[in-house]
Design a binder for these strands. Structure first.
Length: 286
DNA sequence: ATCCAGGTATGCA
DNA sequence: TGCATACCTGGA
């Protein structure tokens, strides 16, 4: 690894304790963060950074080669406190003891804003997988097909690059049946330049509808990509964890996944996705 | 060893 | 519409 720049606070400020930072970076929103010598090292897009929490304030540093770029965009990725202040306030934690407990457990937890194309790719890799294995697959994809950002560190491959990779090579990267979906999606996107950029800026319902045209993208993966990669905070992904915790804590026995998703958006409101993240984290660490 | 994991697409009542 | 089943692979 080449030389690293100086540590400094993220500006505008990102405030969260060490264990919440760990949950933010390595709790299933993103898959390319790892603890290295006691700090978090991660990659998103063509950015690389290290993060640590000092007195609950997040500090960063980056390789000097790309320091300017990281400096310019890291707060967008992490989501500063002032961006989430309204959402934290607007969530119905005053009237909902379940949400209140989950929010109290993870003070400062927020939603990352990842590159949209990358979020689609990572969550296309995620079905029926545990986080550790999703991370492993992402690492392999970057190593084998990604562009080098600085010596020794590679980005995730773009969709146009993936289009040139055979389904067999994708299978060999450990993707299993997901290889066919990724190959199919790369083919779809290759025929529609700019399609993802348009979808990213659409209102949530329309964006979700369009995303679900991609092979392998159902309601859950579409919601994850929109929540973590497009800033659609009303997206409410319902996976097995959320289904389990919502069923238990809101007495929703017998409800389908789609009904639970509908309940979530109706009950939590326009920032339902943020509430989902608190519930998800509290369930995973219950 | 055997089972199951942050789902989706498909086929049948 | 609504539910069961197959699909790859590796880690517990």
């Amino acid at each position: 690894m080449s030389a690293w720049g100086q540590w400094r606070s993220v500006k505008p400020v990102v405030r969260c304790p060490d264990d919440v930072l760990a949950e933010l970076l390595d709790g299933g929103q993103a898959f390319r963060w790892n603890r290295v010598d006691g700090v978090w090292r991660g990659v998103w897009g063509n950015y690389i950074a290290e993060l640590t929490s000092q007195n609950d304030v997040v500090q960063w540093r980056a390789p000097v080669l790309i320091e300017d770029r990281v400096s310019r965009d890291i707060s967008t990725y992490l989501g500063p406190d002032d961006v989430f202040a309204d959402a934290w306030d607007a969530l119905p934690h005053r009237s909902d003891p379940v949400l209140k407990a989950a929010m109290g457990q993870w003070p400062g937890l927020r939603l990352l804003r990842q590159p949209f194309a990358e979020a689609v790719l990572c969550f296309l890799c995620s079905s029926m997988k545990q986080i550790t294995h999703i991370k492993q697959i992402c690492e392999t994809l970057a190593l084998r097909f990604g562009a080098e950002i600085i010596p020794g560190v590679r980005a995730l491959p773009s969709w146009s690059t993936l289009h040139r990779v055979s389904e067999g090579e994708l299978r060999a990267a450990g993707l299993g049946y997901r290889a066919r979906f990724i190959h199919g999606t790369s083919h779809f996107l290759a025929g529609q330049p700019g399609w993802l950029d348009v979808v990213e800026d659409l209102p949530y319902p329309e964006a979700k509808h369009r995303l679900m045209q991609l092979p392998g993208v159902g309601a859950k993966i579409a919601d994850c990509a929109l929540l973590f990669g497009a800033g659609k905070l009303e997206a409410f992904p319902v996976d097995t964890w959320i289904a389990r915790v919502m069923t238990e804590r809101y007495r929703l026995e017998g409800w389908s996944l789609e009904q639970i998703a509908h309940f979530g958006r109706a009950h939590y409101g326009q920032y339902a996705g943020l509430a989902q993240q608190y519930l998800f984290s509290s369930a995973r660490r219950a």
